[in-house]
Design a protein around this nucleic acid. Structure first.
Lengths: 195, 195
DNA sequence: GTTTTTGAACTGACCAGTCAGTCTAAATTC
DNA sequence: GAATTTAGACTGACTGGTCAGTTCAAAAAC
C-alpha cells in the first residue's frame, strides 16, 4: 500500500497539501486558485481533481491531516506526566508544532473563528478534538487539586489553545528572529495561573 | 462636514461599512462580492463605486475606520488612570469594543496575521497604532516600577492585544451567552502578570 | 442647479471543474 | 522473456459561469 502505485499517489497528495497550505495561509482559501496550487506543487491541474473531489474537499482533508498531527503531538507530550507539568508540556508541544508547521498555524488562526463557510462544521469538530486533549489534562489537574477548583475547564482550555496560537503566530510573523525559548517563557508567564 | 452637505454621503458610506464588515467577517474578503455588499446595504452597485475607488479601497477605509474607533476607546479608557488600573481598563475597553463591533473583531482576527495581501501594509500600520496605545501604558507601568522591569514592553503589548482578541472572539462565536464579566475575569486571570 | 443615487447593461479577465487522451509499471498471456 | 493487456496516475486544453469594474441616462435629494 505504501509501496509502488499507492506510494506515488501519497507523494502527490503530500505535495498538494504543502502547496495548498502555504498559499492558503498567505492569501486565504477563496483567493487561492486551484491553478496556483497545481503550479506550486508542480503537478497538472487535473491531478488535483484526480486526488480530491473538489477544492473544498482538498482543504477539508488538509485540515483533518494537520489537526490530526497536532492532537497526536499533544497526546505524546502529556504521556505519563503529572497535571501541572503536563500543561507546560502542552504549551511547549504547541509551540514546537507551530514552529514546524508555521503555515498551517497561520491558516488555522485565520479560518478558525470564521462563520458561514462550507468547511466551518469540519473545523469546529477538529477544534473540539484538539481542545479536548487539553481539557482532559486540565480536568485531571483540577480533580487532583493541583489547579484551582473554580477554573472553568472548558473555557480555560479553549483560552489556552487560542492564546498559544495567537502568540506563536504573532511571533512567527512579526518577530521571527526571537528564539523559541523567549516565546515559551512569555507564554508561560501569561498563562501562569493554569501552568 | 457631518451636517448638511456630506451628511447623506456619510450615511451611505456608513451603511456600506456595516454591510461589508458583516459579509467579510463571515466569508472573507475574496469570497464577498461587491454585488453582495450593495444588496445588503440596500444601495445600488453604482453607489459603491461613487463612494469608493474599488472593493479594496472600501476595505482599507473600513479597516482604518474600525481601528480608529478602537484606539480612540483605548485612549479614553486609560485617561488619567495609574498604570495597573489602566491596563485593566484597556482589557475592559477591548472587550466592550469587541462586543459592540463583533464582526469587525472577527474580521481583524482573520486578516491580521495573513501575509501577501494588498492591504497587508495598511493593516500592519493600524496594528502598530492600536498596540502603540497599549505599549505607552505598559511602559509607564514599567517606568514607575508597578510592572516587572524585565517585561519586554513591545512583546507584552502585542500579546495582550492578541490574547484579548482571540479570547473575546472565541467567546462571541462559541459561547455567546456567557456574560461579559465572566470573560473579563478569565482574561484578567490569564494576563494577571501585567495587570 | 449641484450633488448624490439609481439600475441596468456591458466587458473582459479569471477560475472551478471536466474530459478525452497519454504515460507507465506491472500483470497476463503465449 | 517478448508481446500484449490492464489500470492507476497524470495531463492540459476547454467550457460555462462569475465577478470587479465601467458607463450612463435618468431620477431624487438637497
Amino acid at each position: 500500500m505504501t509501496d509502488g502505485r499507492g506510494r506515488r499517489r501519497a507523494d502527490t497528495r503530500q505535495k498538494l497539501y504543502e502547496a495548498a497550505v502555504q498559499l492558503i495561509a498567505e492569501q486565504g482559501f477563496s483567493a487561492t486558485t486551484v491553478d496556483d496550487i497545481a503550479l506550486r506543487a508542480k503537478v497538472a491541474k487535473g491531478t488535483v481533481y484526480y486526488n480530491f473531489k473538489s477544492k473544498t474537499d482538498l482543504f477539508e482533508e488538509l485540515l483533518r491531516h494537520g489537526v490530526g498531527l497536532l492532537t497526536e503531538e499533544f497526546r505524546a507530550a502529556v504521556e505519563g506526566l503529572p497535571p501541572r507539568e503536563a500543561v507546560r508540556a502542552l504549551v511547549r508541544a504547541q509551540l514546537e508544532y507551530i514552529r514546524k508547521y508555521r503555515a498551517f498555524a497561520q491558516l488555522l488562526l485565520s479560518e478558525m473563528w470564521r462563520t458561514n463557510r462550507e468547511w466551518q462544521q469540519t473545523l469546529v469538530l477538529l477544534r473540539e478534538q484538539a481542545i479536548g486533549v487539553i481539557a482532559e489534562t486540565v480536568q485531571l489537574g483540577v480533580d487532583s487539586g493541583e489547579l484551582p477548583a473554580d477554573l472553568d475547564v472548558r473555557v480555560a482550555s479553549a483560552a489556552l489553545f487560542g492564546v498559544g496560537l495567537v502568540v506563536a503566530v504573532d511571533w512567527l510573523v512579526f518577530q521571527p528572529d526571537r528564539p523559541i525559548e523567549d516565546v515559551e517563557e512569555s507564554l508561560l508567564a501569561i498563562v501562569r495561573r493554569v501552568a
